[in-house]
């Protein structure tokens, strides 16, 4: 079955696949995870705050994002933002947003919805006595969050956060709808050009599989190391 396969095509494409494709994929994953985490924490704090309106806004946002397929959000965002930008700034023609900026913003907005739910669960897993003890010592709400609640919540949810990031790493391949050269996009281009679809897609699958597996294993190791002794 493998007699007709030419695995040398992979070797020749390696520099392109990794320098162009994987660099893009990892950059997008890293920045989107970071941005999603910051924005997601803000959303979670809004939902947990005493202010009902803030909580509602964050709630609607999260539900909205989670009810749409990611690929559709990427697509719509890319084509809509130039026009929204035009309308907001009053420019005479649609403003140009690069494919990278557009996809990064989309992923941050999308992941924030998922991260915020993880954060919310993590914060709620801390018993109410902890913030009470922090308040009793004179810490303000912000200090109690920063020094007492969030450090514990982060430790509890870090495994889930990283697992979600691994999913994000795989999801970044959806930028193919914008014809961006991420790792899968690069593999796809070589496959089309050389007519070696099976080899290239097989190789791409193995690379995604390996990286995700190693990361999952890393999560388990990390979990054992940083767990709060209870």
């Amino acid at each position: 079955m493998f007699a007709n396969l030419d695995f040398d095509v992979i070797r020749r494409a390696l520099p392109y696949l990794f320098y162009e494709g994987m660099t893009f994929t990892l950059t997008l994953t890293g920045l989107a995870a970071l941005g999603g985490l910051i924005f997601g924490t803000a959303l979670a704090l809004m939902r947990l705050s005493g202010f009902k309106i803030l909580g509602r806004i964050a709630g609607i946002y999260v539900d909205f994002m989670r009810s749409l397929p990611l690929v559709l959000v990427i697509f719509w965002f890319y084509f809509l933002v130039p026009y929204i930008g035009q309308w907001v700034t009053g420019a005479s023609r649609p403003i140009s947003v690069g494919a990278f900026a557009s996809s990064l913003i989309t992923f941050i907005m999308f992941e924030a919805a998922y991260f915020s739910e993880i954060m919310r669960a993590g914060i709620q897993s801390i018993s109410r006595g902890q913030p009470a003890a922090a308040s009793a010592l004179g810490l303000t709400y912000a200090q109690s969050m920063r020094y007492v609640v969030l450090p514990q919540a982060f430790r509890n949810m870090l495994p889930v956060l990283i697992t979600q990031t691994i999913v994000l790493f795989q999801d970044t391949s959806l930028v193919y709808v914008l014809s961006i050269t991420d790792f899968l996009g690069a593999a796809s281009k070589v496959a089309q050009r050389d007519g070696r679809l099976v080899e290239m897609y097989l190789f791409a699958a193995i690379v995604y599989f390996t990286i995700s597996c190693v990361a999952s294993y890393g999560v388990r190791r990390l979990q054992a190391r940083i767990a709060i002794i209870r």
Partner: peptide, 28 residues
Amino acid sequence: PKLRSRVGMVFQHFELFPHLKIIDNLCL
């Protein structure tokens, strides 16, 4: 917060901060 910082409180379930060493619990 200022008022509470002058009023010590001890809870039924201790409520030490589990992610901090004992000395850091006292210093925070």
